Amino acid sequence: MRALIAGAGRLGARIAQVLASAGSEITLVESDTARVAALRERHGARLTVGDACEPTVLERAGARVADVVLATTDNDDDNLVISLLAKRHFAAPRVVALVNDHERAWLFDQRWGVDVAVPASTPLVSLIEEATGASDTVALLRLSKAGVDIIETVITSRSRAVGRSLMDIALPAGTVVATVVREGQPMVPEAALRVRAGDEILLVSHEAEEEEIHAAFQ
């Protein structure tokens, strides 16, 4: 998958890291030259310096061939302009826009070229799932040097883990629960915490596969 991420702040950089670890071809667009210099040292993504609200900058970054464009700046006006250009001018198949001010969420729709509007409070993995159309269990980050995977599974009303405490769920060997995100807020994964539909559970493992994690909760 070819992803163009406009806005290489903390969120945009994290998304790039995750998608790149999954084998996607990533281009980051950022106007802050100091930030770009720091990113060059840490990321394997292609970097384009410039204002993503300018059509020439988006074209130089590969907007015409991108499978998904993500507008992840901290400015809602910029995200709307980027989304409109991506959809109307470059015919991007999928446009995802970050909504920083929830009171302006009503603007983020097809009129502005937005396929998916994501509130800033949305957990990182959910945002990535919206962008890529991934399944409800995705590898968040492959830490190859440490041999560790961070994996998230989303609990639905049909998940067999609903109503059970974390201590009662048999996890694969070498796996621990890192956090439970409930209604957008991370929670300490205490053993007695009961799982609810809608929970997003983040686990760390150096042995288990995604399918094993999915089987334990779903």
Score class of each variant (00 low, 15 high):
139 A>D: 14
141 L>P: 00
126 S>D: 14
93 P>F: 04
101 D>P: 00
104 R>V: 03
106 W>G: 04
160 R>S: 12
139 A>V: 15
78 D>Y: 09
145 K>T: 12
86 A>K: 07
177 V>A: 04
74 D>I: 10
113 G>M: 04
105 A>Q: 11
162 V>A: 05
171 L>E: 05
175 T>W: 08
85 L>R: 07
95 V>E: 08
133 G>L: 10
79 N>W: 09
107 L>R: 06
86 A>M: 04
101 D>H: 14
94 R>N: 10
99 V>I: 11
82 I>K: 10
150 I>Y: 12
79 N>K: 02
138 V>P: 00
124 L>S: 02
129 E>R: 15
127 L>S: 05
126 S>T: 13
141 L>Y: 10
99 V>E: 07
97 A>L: 02
177 V>S: 06
84 L>E: 06
100 N>M: 04
96 V>S: 08
142 R>F: 14
162 V>Y: 07
157 S>N: 13
132 T>C: 10
165 S>D: 09
140 L>T: 00
71 A>Q: 09
148 V>C: 06
119 P>K: 07
82 I>D: 01
98 L>I: 10
96 V>D: 02
148 V>F: 05
128 I>K: 01
90 F>W: 05
175 T>Q: 03
137 T>C: 13
95 V>F: 07
171 L>K: 01
88 R>M: 11
124 L>R: 04
93 P>C: 08
113 G>D: 03
120 A>P: 00
172 P>V: 06
82 I>G: 04
130 E>D: 14
136 D>Y: 03
79 N>S: 06
72 T>R: 01
92 A>T: 12
154 V>Y: 10
117 A>G: 08
160 R>G: 15
81 V>Y: 05
150 I>M: 12
133 G>A: 03
123 P>N: 09
163 G>Y: 08
135 S>L: 12
118 V>P: 02
171 L>C: 02
150 I>V: 15
168 D>P: 03
126 S>R: 12
88 R>Y: 08
89 H>I: 11
89 H>E: 15
129 E>M: 15
93 P>N: 05
114 V>I: 09
149 D>P: 00
177 V>F: 06
85 L>T: 09
102 H>V: 13
173 A>Y: 07
110 Q>T: 14
78 D>M: 06
142 R>P: 09
155 I>Q: 05
116 V>E: 15
165 S>Y: 08
138 V>R: 12
121 S>Q: 10
150 I>W: 08
142 R>M: 06
107 L>Y: 12
78 D>W: 01
108 F>Y: 01
122 T>V: 09
86 A>F: 08
103 E>A: 13
98 L>W: 02
125 V>E: 15
124 L>H: 01
82 I>A: 01
101 D>K: 12
121 S>M: 07
144 S>R: 15
103 E>W: 09
171 L>M: 04
98 L>M: 13
173 A>T: 14
101 D>T: 07
91 A>G: 02
148 V>I: 15
93 P>L: 09
83 S>E: 07
142 R>K: 12
75 N>Y: 06
